[in-house]
Amino acid sequence: MIIELKKFGEDLHGRPSGKDAYDSIIARLNDLPKTEHIIIDFGGVNSFSTSWLDEVLTPLQKTYGNRLILRNVTNLSAKMSLDTLKEVGGKNFRIEY
């Protein structure tokens, strides 16, 4: 399944908004076959912050592990937010290059 982050907004910031997005995403993953990947597409979003991404990606990774794949991570603020999650919190996500 592909989740397009641009459908959640052009600028993705703040924990409350991130948590809302996570709740919306997780509701769509209920019937997902156990082998299917969850692809999070970063394309088309103008800016990200660590807080928003942490609320969305951290619990998804906890549940789906390596089945979670990040696609189109080209925006600089997205790359740096993921770097912060990695350097400060030790969180590594599978990024498709």
Partner: peptide, 21 residues
């Protein structure tokens, strides 16, 4: 550049979030 703008906004929004939450 758009990338630079995204980083300015990203840093500012973390500080805005801190101020409120």
């Amino acid at each position: 550049s758009d990338d630079y703008i995204s980083v300015v906004i990203s840093a500012a929004m973390e500080l805005v979030g801190n101020a409120f939450y």
